Simulated assay, not measured.
Amino acid sequence: MSDDNEPGHGNSPAAWVAVVVMLIGFTAGTFAFWFDQPLFVWISGGVVVVGLLLGIVLAKLGYGVKGPRYVPKNHS
């Protein structure tokens, strides 16, 4: 049932780093909003944008799914 043309579903270092950084930003922003701290809400929004840019940069550096530095793991 394996397809050799499968893109990997974003299971790469670039994707993991981007998602983790953005999750931290969303979580911090939620708490900042809850505690009525508008400055920290905006800072958290910036962290989310940084996470997105970090994922793009890492993918361009070869850590994306089809990058030369990414080594897929065999799932058996």
Rank of each mutant, 00 (worst) to 15 (best):
G64D: 03
F35I: 04
G55P: 04
V19C: 09
L53N: 05
A59C: 03
L54E: 06
L52H: 09
K60F: 08
F26I: 10
V41S: 03
D3H: 11
P68V: 12
E6I: 14
P72K: 09
T30I: 10
G10K: 00
G64Y: 07
L61V: 09
P72A: 08
G29D: 06
L23G: 15
D36T: 13
P38M: 07
V41L: 09
H9M: 11
P13D: 02
S44R: 00
F40H: 06
K66H: 11
T30F: 12
T27I: 10
A18W: 01
M22V: 15
Q37L: 13
Y63R: 02
L52C: 09
V17N: 06
M1H: 11
L54P: 06
D3M: 10
V19Y: 11
F35T: 12
Y70F: 15
G8S: 03
W34Y: 12
L23K: 03
S12W: 03
Y70N: 15
G8Q: 00
S2A: 11
N11Q: 13
F40E: 02
V41P: 02
G29W: 01
Q37Y: 04
P7H: 06
D4H: 09
P68M: 07
H75S: 13
H75D: 12
V65Y: 00
G10N: 02
L54W: 06
N11W: 11
G10D: 05
F31M: 10
N74I: 15
K66L: 07
L54D: 08
P7W: 04
L58Q: 07
P38F: 04
K73G: 13
H9K: 11
D3W: 06
W42G: 05
S44G: 10
I43N: 02
S76E: 07
W34V: 13
L53D: 00
W16K: 11
I24S: 03
V41M: 11
S44Q: 04
G46F: 05
W34A: 13
L53S: 04
H75L: 15
A28H: 02
V48G: 00
M22R: 14
F35R: 03
F35L: 10
V57S: 03
L23Y: 08
K60Q: 12
